[in-house]
Design a protein around this nucleic acid. Structure first.
Length: 263
DNA sequence: GTTGAGCGTT
């Protein structure tokens, strides 16, 4: 395991958690430990893994004993390249149970009573505002998608992917699904969006339908033209030898240069 | 053999 022979999370009361992001999926806790241990006393290194595949999720948690050391590690290790990937080191924002964390330290108001003070706050897990601004909408991480989906499936199978969180659900995610669903039934009503009359290819018997009737010279594709000409020969098994049956297929799609010659 | 802007385990 990621732990040092211990099971379960060690005492995190006096530890400062760092979140290490963008690590490779092959990086293990053993790889990170020496790196971080150089800058301070590392209490634990944990890399969340997928329950099903056991693969790393791409980030790790490093717990330091002292905040100053953790801070130093953040400054020193943040941005370095590990295993060919630039990692990001920052203080953890949430605790193992979604506790609020400040500067890597769990700062939660523990009521006098020992009740379930852990009850997570109703506040959504929105990222910080600054992140939303700079957040580039690249491609969402597939790993997270997989994880999320499977998670939902395992827990609320009947619910499907209806509404995971009414307020925390991203707009684009929901919008996409809705848009698709809405479009589907609508299209099924009419066969084609243009109208009840689907456009027919044979409707335009005129060849002039093609706006560009001047095809490039047959000697086109100079780049492809090999000085030897053997390469082309190999690639093209003489289009003329194609059976007429095939020709018809091609004809319907695009006029063959031969057609023009025929003209 | 695979991915990537993401917050955690007995």
């Amino acid at each position: 395991m990621s732990h040092f022979g211990r099971s379960g999370p060690p005492d995190i009361r006096d530890t400062f958690s760092l979140l290490v992001l963008n690590i490779t999926f092959r990086t293990t806790a053993d790889d990170l430990f020496p790196l971080f241990d150089k800058y301070g006393k590392v209490v634990d290194v944990f890399i969340p893994r997928d329950r099903r595949t056991g693969e790393s999720r791409g980030f790790a948690f490093v717990r330091y004993k002292y905040p100053d050391e953790a801070q130093k590690a953040v400054e020193k290790l943040d941005g370095i390249t590990v295993d060919g990937r630039e990692i990001m080191v920052q203080f953890a924002k949430y605790g193992p149970n979604a506790e609020r964390i400040s500067k890597g330290r769990i700062v939660e108001f523990f009521p006098k009573s020992k009740g379930r003070s852990r009850s997570r706050s109703p506040r959504p897990r929105y990222r910080d505002d600054y992140r939303g601004r700079d957040h580039k909408r690249r491609s969402r991480s597939r790993s997270r998608d997989r994880y999320d989906r499977d998670r939902n499936r395992g827990r609320d199978r009947e619910h499907r992917r209806r509404s995971r969180s009414r307020s925390a659900s991203p707009d684009y995610d929901r919008g996409r699904y809705r848009g698709k669903l809405d479009e589907e039934p609508r299209r099924s009503r009419t066969r084609s969006p243009d109208g009840a009359s689907p456009v027919r290819r044979s409707l335009s018997p005129r060849r002039s339908a093609s706006p560009r009737r001047t095809p490039p010279s047959r000697d086109e594709s100079p780049a492809r033209h090999s000085p030897n000409g053997r390469d082309i020969d190999k690639r093209s098994p003489t289009p003329r030898s194609v059976s007429p049956d095939r020709r018809r297929h091609a004809d319907s799609r695009s006029p063959s240069p031969r057609n023009l010659e025929d003209d």
